[in-house]
Amino acid sequence: MSGAHLAVRNIGKSFRGLRAVNDVAFDVPAGAIHALIGPNGAGKTTCFNMIAGVYPPDGGTILLDEHSIAGLRPDQICAAGVGRTFQIVRPFMGLTVEENVTIGALAHCRHVPEARALARELLEELGLGDRRTARAASLTLPDRKRLEVARALATRPRLLLLDEVMAGLRPTETDQMVAFLKELNARTGVTILLIEHVMRAVMALSQHIVVLHHGEKIAEGRPEDVTRDPAVLDVYLGQEVH
């Protein structure tokens, strides 16, 4: 398994007159870890939703390894190699933790036992091994976030979209997640694009940051440059960037 190259070219999205995303373009090279940051309501999740196929962009194109995926259904985009988590977690609440991840694995495993074995492996790696038989509804928020990551990973993505998976985690848990994602990226080469407010995690993980504000890209570059960018500092005035 290796990573895919994501190319987002001038996509936009309006909701009943509200311009949520306007003419945004960026690239995530194969195997890279990039971050998408910006204040609340900047349009980050909307970008994810367009990439993942929840709704098509109003204009522009989205390429995965040079193939256009804009306008495909979410399951087709998943099959093309994109895994995503939801900012507001949506595990299958009534099912067990293992069943949740097994469903993801069935995207490429023909048989249930094979999918289940893969699910167990992933759950161990994410520290959820002992919660295997618990219902997802009984998990704490940090565990639900881990479960989201496990289910997305189970589909064997070549591009992983993570929407605030560190929010609500304690610092030690954040560090664990950062270490896990780093190791995953190094081992499998999966491309990762993450939306994150926890700057600790952003700085530790990403090689490149894209900053959105009011639906527009206002800056992008290496983390140390972006966090010194006057436009970015202006947006985050009063908020801590480091």
């Binding site: 993942a52 929840v54 609440m93 009534g94 099912l95 469903i103 249930v112 999918a115």
Partner: peptide
């Protein structure tokens, strides 16, 4: 219920949008 189809149905029952994101043709 013990096969792929059963798992897919349960996923759709629980959350069709999340099911679709997990690659299921709802």
């Amino acid at each position: 219920l013990t096969g792929r189809l059963g798992y897919y149905w349960l996923a759709i029952r629980e959350d069709p949008e999340a099911a679709q994101a997990a690659g299921i043709n709802v």
